[in-house]
């Protein structure tokens, strides 16, 4: 069995969720990785060094530069005959592209796989992670996305795969990239961070939300948010943690002024250690928190900052 993984990459580096998808792929067979983009040499070299990768396929063309779904799906469909499984990360790109590939192959995709049972059988969360479904696919080719939080990523170094160019496929030309607003941050990425600190509606304003920044920097943490905080404009959209936002499973998750709605828990309840700070001792977040602190965040967050600075 040979598996093809679609790589997410930027600035010559491969994403951590892609390294998790490769970890899942290694359990299924020989792993080839597709690196498509506008200038892929550096990213392809980085992927070739990942342990477990047998071959890197590159597709270098302007049509792939912004990972638009229509040309990328066409490319994957052209490559599909050589593979039993086509995998992507459960990232914005993977979720956009892989179902399109599946439909073109007349396959029912398997989204957000959290465990591999065997070559045809997979576990995936449903109902905001309140249930886990074990499903068996009857399709000849399996098309799936991999939940990064459920698979430890393969290491960054250790492999030495061959790099080969894939034949470029005609761009269906249905959509064009206009622009992107990507916030540059010195902090780690939410889905890759070892520690995440998230704020909720109780933060009260975009200005107050920055209270979390200092603590985040002291801990080397990424900053996340509840939907309520994002909807209110306190934090950017891509900070949302939850069923319909990002799924994270860091070593430590700190929830500040977040009630703990099921949709939020869906995105963080697999974290190793959970801390909650909330003024309502009945808040549902305390039912999943390892350490709960009841009180006013506007008093406790500055105290936390001082305590971390003290020692």
């Amino acid at each position: 069995m040979t598996v093809l993984v679609l790589a997410d990459h930027a600035d010559g580096a491969v994403s951590q969720p892609t390294r998790s998808a490769i970890a899942a792929a290694v359990r299924l067979g020989d792993v080839h990785v597709l690196v498509a983009g506008g200038d892929v040499a550096a990213a392809a070299a980085a992927v070739a060094r990942l342990p477990g990768v047998a071959k890197v396929l590159t597709a270098d063309a302007p049509a792939y530069a912004h990972a638009l779904a229509e040309p990328l799906a066409a490319l994957l469909v052209a490559l599909a005959p050589g593979y039993t499984h086509l995998l992507g990360a459960s990232s914005a790109i993977g979720k956009n592209v892989m179902p399109r590939v599946a439909a073109l192959l007349d396959v029912q995709p398997i989204s957000d796989v959290s465990a591999v049972v065997d070559a045809d059988t997979f576990v995936r969360p449903i109902y905001a992670g309140n249930a886990l479904a074990t499903v068996r696919s009857a399709d000849a080719t399996k098309v799936m996305t991999i939940r990064a939080a459920s698979f430890d990523p393969v290491a960054v170094e250790g492999g030495s795969a061959a790099i080969e160019a894939a034949a470029v496929v005609a761009d269906p030309g249905l959509s064009t990239f206009v622009g992107a607003e990507i916030a540059k941050s010195e902090r780690p990425e939410l889905t890759a961070a070892r520690i995440v600190i998230s704020g909720g509606r109780a933060m009260g304003s975009a200005e107050n939300f920055h209270l979390l920044d200092k603590v985040a920097d002291m801990l080397g943490a990424a900053v996340g948010a509840s939907r309520a905080a994002v909807d209110a404009g306190y934090a950017p959209n891509d900070h949302q943690v939850g069923q319909t936002g990002k799924i994270v499973a860091p070593e430590l998750y700190i929830a500040i002024g977040i009630s703990g709605a099921i949709q939020h828990l869906a995105g963080m309840k697999d974290s190793k250690v959970i801390v909650a700070i909330n003024k309502d001792e009945e808040a549902p977040i305390f039912q999943v928190a390892d350490y709960g602190l009841v009180g006013d965040l506007f008093k406790l967050v500055p105290e936390l900052e001082a305590e971390l600075a003290r020692t």
């Binding site: 396959v107 074990t134 499903v135 696919s137 001792e281 390892d290 350490y291």
Partner: peptide, 19 residues
């Protein structure tokens, strides 16, 4: 195309304690 073999509850998280 997918057969659901089983649906189960995810492992329950134990509530910790208050500090």
């Amino acid at each position: 195309r997918l057969t659901v073999l089983k649906v189960e509850e995810p492992p329950k998280r134990q509530a910790g304690r208050k500090v």
